[in-house]
């Protein structure tokens, strides 16, 4: 299961990174979102993959539980990720209205 999980993370990262290297704003925004999914999955897995161990504790906290710390970190990361995606996409809109095209470098043609 761990291997399958890792491969999935790797594939999602690859797709996200490929899109980030594109020349137009929208694919880059989509790529960032995809990459942030992959990163969240990666971070989340740092506590191990636990089945049926939701961290609602009773007593002194010993027993079969998932690691709550990566979860707390990822939770805020998801919300921040949304804010950043929103910011980038609005920036892309603004750039298009100011520059006149949606190339990431503000140029009409790709230079390469």
């Amino acid at each position: 299961m761990e291997m399958l999980y890792s491969i999935t993370t790797g594939v999602l990262s690859t797709c996200g990174l490929y899109l980030i290297l594109r020349g137009r704003t929208f694919p880059v925004v989509v790529g960032l979102t995809l990459l942030s999914y992959a990163v969240n999955l990666f971070l989340f897995s740092m506590g191990g993959l636990t089945t049926d161990g939701a961290t609602v504790v009773h007593g002194n906290g010993e027993g079969h539980y998932a690691d709550p710390l990566p979860q707390a970190l990822v939770l805020t990361a998801i919300v921040i990720g949304f804010a950043m995606t929103a910011f980038v996409v609005i920036l892309a809109m603004r750039a298009r209205s100011e520059v006149g095209n949606d190339h990431v470098d503000g140029k009409k043609e790709d230079r390469e």
């Binding site: 999980y5 890792s6 993370t9 990262s13 690859t14 990174l17 490929y18 897995s45 740092m46 191990g48």
Partner: peptide, 19 residues
């Protein structure tokens, strides 16, 4: 594609190693 795949492979390996 090569660059992204290579990085993806590194990320996957890293993830697997930690898990």
């Amino acid at each position: 594609v090569f660059l992204a795949s290579a990085l993806g492979a590194v990320i996957a390996s890293l993830n697997y190693a930690v898990l």
